[in-house]
Design a protein around this nucleic acid. Structure first.
Length: 573
RNA sequence: GAUUCAGUAGCUCAGCUGGUAGAGCACAUCACUUUUAAUGAUGGGGUCCUGGGUUCGAACCCCAGCUGAAUCACCA
């Protein structure tokens, strides 16, 4: 790294690093550090009258410092929280040599450094539980300044808020914005709660292929890649449904997977190109059973996270207490439009869409028309958890026909806060019907629907060996996490949301500058002056370049022998 | 994809009608033994996102681009 590319603060920290080493202190020691407790345990359990926590060893990052002469306070942050430490010169350095306090602690350490301390708990005059430090070890020196966030009485000053920096440098976000950590701890708890419930019931957690030669199980545009050895295209999965159902054919009674799926579509507040879905399939069940199972699961998640079924989401309170409201799709449309579409044919549906002002196009079949009406007129109204049931058959090519109406399917979606959260079926296990439905998808595809499903003949073959009656359910984990943590954007529940790559530094390599006869020690100065490429340099005014780089030499006290104006002209010739 | 807004010091942000680049925190030096957004004094720190244009003169006006955000559209 070129010193001239660094800010003043970074240079000072690098010099501190050298000075530490010259004092015989390794800023990145190899040995373990024997931590015996943590900040929050001390804060929660220290009682001065019990005189406990009198030999504590903790480690963490220095988040603030208040130095006054022979005494200093600092805040140490570990994975659990923060605690104040008190460093007194004569307690840290009982002998004659006060270097560790005067030089190392006061001057060479910075906010952001990771240190270990040994000491004992006490309460300061203003009543704050603190650790008096008797030994101090540098564990890792930070050479880049951290964003400084200050806080007083719950009010945050100079918060680190720029979304671009927060997402690109999530580690900084986690260090300085403690609530962020909490969101991800909750996310993990959601998954664990679900996993525990499934395991209690004896269902098996499985893994299925992410690279698939036919991207099946959903309607979406896939990412495509290439396998060199096989010389075939492979797709990143858009769903894992067809593989999990093969496992039910294979004889497992319950299988589930927390899966990353990938869809090559737009990105916005609720869509990331890769996202997490949990899908579960249980043999000998139907979608009515699955509704009971789903509401129990979600209620349990809410209780595990919040200790109550009521969760605040934006300006709304959502109650996840089971049972949830259940309504058929046709009844939902009737409720919100006063129109009964249950007996309409395709032309009548088109007419109805026009009357309702729902935008449609010629590629849409009957199912898609119904879906459009629902999406436009109903979906947003279901704030409290609501099961929408019995979808038209055209929209659900993997779902079993309704037991009492062959135009419909035994399908439900769970709507919460106006958005779809779960999708579930009594799974289609009639292989001949399944093949016919795939062929209908092919027709839709020929009609221009670029999201119609591919035919997976191997999956149909598996059904021909007989799959037990099965119910399956999928739930978007990111969206569930958004609801349960009151996060308005999917980016807030993904550690590393997809971002456009940062623009590249287009500087030419130093060797190209050397070829022009520029001495090595001057190349970085030329770049610092703004001439980062040879092309830019060729257009430079030699006199101005000469003055600029000589100025930089002086300014940064590099004490190089200045080149003559003729030398500079020769570089540009 | 459309529209709007934003990009200035390590961080958060000012910057008037176009006239020498500003503050707080952070950093450096000094003072200070229980502070807590510590304090006081002094000081250093800038590719004003990038590239063009207009102008005697651009952080500011115009054009193009990059990145992000919001709204809408698309999308199980």
């Amino acid at each position: 790294m070129d010193l001239l590319e660094l800010s003043e603060q970074e240079i000072i920290r690098r010099e501190s690093l050298k000075e530490l080493r010259s004092l015989g202190i390794e800023p990145y020691p190899a040995a373990l550090f024997p931590v015996n407790t943590n900040t929050v345990t001390i804060k929660d359990n220290y009682k001065p009258e019990e005189n406990n926590f009198q030999e504590v060893v903790i480690a963490g990052r220095i988040m603030s410092r208040r130095i006054m002469g022979k005494a200093a306070f600092a805040e140490l942050q570990d994975s659990e929280g923060k605690i104040q430490i008190y460093v007194n010169r004569d307690e840290l350095c009982p002998g004659e040599d006060k270097t560790l306090y005067n030089t190392v602690f006061k001057r060479l350490l910075d906010i952001g450094d990771i240190i270990g301390v040994k000491g004992y708990a006490f309460v300061t005059q203003v009543g704050e539980k603190s650790i008096k430090v008797t030994e101090l070890t540098i564990l890792s020196k930070s050479i880049r300044p951290l964003p400084i966030v200050k806080e007083k009485e719950g009010k945050v000053y100079d918060a680190f808020t720029d979304p671009e920096q927060r997402y690109r440098q999530r580690y900084l976000d986690l260090i300085v914005n403690p609530d962020v950590k909490d969101t991800f701890i909750k996310r993990s708890k959601i998954i664990n709660t679900m996993r525990n419930m499934f395991n209690e019931r004896g269902y098996l957690e499985v893994e299925t292929p992410i690279l698939q030669s036919i991207p099946g199980g959903a309607s979406a545009r896939p990412f495509i890649t290439h396998h060199n050895a096989l010389n075939i295209p492979l797709y990143l999965r858009i769903a894992n449904e067809l593989y999990l159902k093969r496992l039910i054919v294979g004889g497992f009674d319950g299988v589930y997977e927390f899966a990353k799926d990938f869809r090559n579509e737009g990105m916005d507040r609720t869509h990331n190109p890769e996202f997490t879905v949990m899908e579960i399939y249980v043999a000998y069940k139907d979608y009515n059973w699955m509704m009971d199972f789903t509401e129990e699961m979600i209620e349990r998640v809410a209780m595990a996270l919040h200790g109550t079924t009521e969760v605040t989401v934006g300006d709304k309170t959502i109650n996840f207490k089971a049972p949830f409201k259940r309504i058929t799709m046709f009844d939902a449309i009737k409720e919100h439009t006063n129109i009964d579409i249950s007996n309409m044919n395709e032309d009548e549906l088109r007419k109805t869409c026009k009357e309702l002002g729902v935008e449609i196009d010629d590629t849409m079949g009957k199912g898609k028309l119904v879906d459009e009406i629902f999406g436009e007129k109903c979906e947003g109204n279901y704030i409290q958890p609501t099961f929408i049931t019995d979808y038209p058959i055209e929209m659900s090519p993997l779902c079993k026909r309704h037991r009492s109406n062959p135009e419909l399917t035994e399908r439900f979606e769970l709507m919460v806060n106006g958005k779809e959260l779960c999708n579930a079926y009594s799974e289609l296990n009639d292989p001949i019907d399944q093949m016919g439905r795939f062929q209908d998808q092919l027709k839709l595809s020929e009609k221009g629907d670029d999201e119609a499903m591919f035919i997976d003949t191997d999956f149909v073959k598996s059904l021909e060996y007989a799959m037990p009656p099965t119910s399956g359910m999928g739930i978007g984990i990111d969206r569930l996490a958004m609801l349960m943590t009151n996060s308005p954007s999917i980016q807030d529940v993904l550690f590393f949301p997809q971002m456009r790559p940062e623009k590249k530094n287009d500087a030419d390599s130093n060797s190209k500058f050397l070829e022009l006869g520029i001495p090595e020690e001057w190349v970085s100065l030329v770049k610092k002056a703004g001439f980062t490429t040879i092309d830019k340099l060729k257009e430079a005014n030699p006199n101005k370049l000469h003055q600029t780089i000589c100025g930089l030499n002086k300014k940064h006290k590099l004490e190089l022998q200045n080149p003559s104006a003729d030398d500079v002209r020769a570089w540009l010739a």
